[in-house]
Amino acid sequence: MAEDVTGSRRRAELRAFLMSRRARVSPAEAGLPAGGSRRRTPGLRREEVAVLAGVGASWYQWLEQGRDISVSPQVLNSVARVLRLGDAERRHLYVLAGLNPPAPEVAPERRDMCDGLRRLIDTWMPYPAHIMDRYYTCVMYNEAAAAVLGMGPGGSQNCLVDFFTDPLYRARSRSWESNARAVVAQFRAACAAAPGDEGLQAVLAEVSAASAEFTALWEQRDIEDAGQLRKELDHPLVGLLSVESTALKVPARPDLTIVLHTPLDEANTAAKLEWLASPEGRRGALYPVAG
């Protein structure tokens, strides 16, 4: 019964959504002649959407009515194109039609968000924060990440590769053994979500060739969503640091992951991070820890 109610609501929302999107697209925007009979409602008619999308008029009418009909991703993409849907709207259409939505894409107008993300991680000071792309490459980090986690111009700039190949990180990370399985399981989940992504396959090939330990963990086929990891690091200036890293996604930039490190109560970590960010701590930070 609950499923019937949910389906009824979804079909009603599908009808309202398609009607609202039709109303906002003018015939001229759709490439149709400006002439013709007077329109009772703004936007495109159902028949016009059907012709432009290459589907039958009856089929489109049934889709808009929310009838139980066969729907394919290719047809929904054609309808989305005619109705000039953005990426979020197109994925919403998939959900309303009862299909799994495609992977999110970065809208062109959202590609200029990096200044805002830079302000976000800089505001996180004196705690470490960095941003990775979909291939685990570090694209942005704050000063605390450089001082505490050793992020900088050196190294591969790939967080996954460095985790398994950077001897300095391995030597100073007390939590390496406990976190390695989760790191690999999260990377496998990312690869599974994009099986045809050549960039992810290139990273997989690189780290597999460089680390037998990674290969052994990869063969276990564990899957885990990115979330939180506890990290314990031995910093040469302040000793033990206990932090919790949290991976965050911004829906408008699905290609990026923000990783914020929060001090835990152990080892007076917050005070140590504040000292490392002070002028005195910066003068003494000659031997950063990779992470």
Rank of each mutant, 00 (worst) to 15 (best):
E198M: 06
V250Y: 08
L256A: 01
K231T: 03
A193S: 13
L120S: 04
P263I: 08
L18Q: 05
N77V: 11
V139M: 06
V238D: 00
G227N: 08
A28L: 12
D265K: 08
E143Q: 14
L96T: 07
A202Q: 14
S26H: 08
R174I: 02
V49H: 10
N179Q: 06
A209G: 15
R181E: 14
V250G: 00
A182K: 13
D225Y: 01
T257W: 06
A50Y: 06
R174Q: 13
L241S: 03
P73I: 01
V259L: 11
V82D: 04
S70G: 04
E109S: 10
D68P: 00
C138M: 13
M1E: 11
A80L: 10
F164G: 00
P236Q: 11
L241M: 07
S20I: 03
D133E: 02
L260I: 12
L260E: 05
S178D: 10
A205K: 10
D162H: 03
V203F: 04
D122V: 05
R90S: 11
P42I: 08
L76H: 06
L120A: 11
D222F: 09
T269F: 03
R253S: 09
D197I: 05
G196V: 07
P279M: 09
G196E: 15
T215R: 13
S8I: 00
T165F: 13
